[in-house]
C-alpha cells in the first residue's frame, strides 16, 4: 500500500508539506471569516487570523513555486510565518476560551465556548513549517514528526467533533462517527509514533487514513444537508448551521498522515538520533 504511493524523496515530501501548509493557511482565511461572521467580528482581533491567512501564504508561495525551501528568504520567511502561526494559534485558543470557559470553568462552558481547539490548527501548520526547515537531512525523523503533528491534529479533531456535536446533544447517531473516526485515527497514529517501524501497523493505519478521507467527505455531505436550498443566498444561515467545511479536516489530516506514514515506511531510521 505504502509502496504504491510512490517513491518520493525527502525533498519532494518537504515540498508537498509546504504546499499543504500554503493551501491550508489560505483556506483558513475563508473558514475563519465564515466562523467569525457568526460573531459579527465583534472583536477587532477576530480579523487577525484572516489577515494572517491571506499574507502568510504570500510569503511562502515563492519558495514553493521555485521548489527550493533552502534559499535564505524562503528558509527564514518560512520560520517567521511558522512562529507567527504558533502565536496566532495559541492566542486564538486563549481568546476562544475567554468567550465562556474562563468565566466559569465547567464542562458545560467548554461545550458552549467558541471552538477552543480550532485555532490550534494555526499552531500545527506553524510547526509543520518549522519542521520542514529543521529536519532537512533526516528523512525518517521528518516523517515521524509529520506523523506526530497529524496525530496532534486528529486529537484536536476528536475534541472538536465531540464538543461541536455535544452542542447538538448528539441528536443523530451518525454524529458519533467523527468522534469514533478521530479516536481510531489518534490511537493508531499514537501507536505508529511509539512503534514507528512496524509495517503491519503502518499499513493498517494507512488504510484507516484513506477511510478518514471518506469520513470527511461523508461529514461534509451531512453538514450540507442541514442547509436549506436558498441558504447560500443568506450567509448568516450558513454561518449558524453545521459548518460545511469542517469535516474536510478529516481528509486534510489523513493526507498529512499518509505523507508521514509514507516516509516512515520508506526511509531507514537514523538510530543515532532516536
Amino acid at each position: 500500500m505504502i509502496r504504491w504511493l510512490g517513491t518520493l524523496s525527502c525533498d519532494a515530501r518537504r515540498l508537498i508539506i509546504e504546499i499543504f501548509v500554503i493551501f491550508n493557511l489560505a483556506f483558513l482565511a475563508v473558514d475563519v471569516y465564515v466562523a467569525h461572521l457568526a460573531n459579527h467580528f465583534e472583536h477587532t482581533t477576530e480579523w487577525l487570523p484572516v489577515a494572517f491567512s491571506v499574507f502568510g501564504p504570500l510569503v511562502l508561495l515563492p519558495g514553493a513555486i521555485r521548489r527550493n525551501l533552502d534559499r535564505p528568504w524562503a528558509y527564514f520567511g518560512g520560520f517567521a510565518v511558522g512562529f507567527a502561526a504558533i502565536v496566532v494559534g495559541v492566542a486564538g485558543l486563549v481568546f476562544h476560551l475567554h468567550s465562556a470557559f474562563f468565566a466559569t470553568p465547567s464542562l458545560k462552558n467548554l461545550v458552549y465556548t467558541a471552538p477552543f481547539i480550532a485555532p490550534l490548527s494555526y499552531a500545527g501548520l506553524g510547526m509543520l513549517l518549522i519542521l520542514n526547515r529543521l529536519e532537512r537531512s533526516h528523512a525518517f525523523e521528518h516523517a515521524l514528526w509529520v506523523t506526530i503533528l497529524a496525530l496532534g491534529g486528529f486529537v484536536g479533531n476528536f475534541g472538536l467533533s465531540l464538543a461541536d456535536h455535544a452542542v447538538n446533544g448528539f441528536f443523530r447517531v451518525p454524529e458519533w462517527i467523527p468522534v469514533f473516526a478521530a479516536a481510531l485515527a489518534s490511537s493508531l497514529l499514537f501507536m505508529v509514533c511509539v512503534v514507528s517501524r512496524d509495517r503491519v501497523l503502518i499499513g493498517t493505519t494507512a488504510v484507516v487514513m484513506v477511510a478518514e478521507v471518506a469520513v470527511g467527505l461523508l461529514g461534509s455531505f451531512f453538514h450540507l444537508q442541514t442547509l436549506p436550498g436558498e441558504a447560500w443566498r443568506h450567509l448568516d444561515v450558513v454561518t449558524h448551521r453545521a459548518p460545511p467545511f469542517a469535516p474536510m479536516l478529516f481528509a486534510d489530516l489523513a493526507v498529512l498522515a499518509l505523507i508521514g506514514l509514507h516516509g516512515l515506511a520508506r526511509e531507514p531510521a537514523d538510530d543515532s538520533r532516536l
Binding site: 479516536a183 481510531l184 485515527a185 493508531l188 512503534v195 501497523l201
Partner: peptide, 11 residues
C-alpha cells in the same frame, strides 16, 4: 496485529 489491537483498544 498486536499494535493495531492496542490502538483499537485505546480508540
Amino acid at each position: 496485529f498486536k499494535y493495531v489491537f492496542i490502538a483499537v483498544f485505546l480508540g
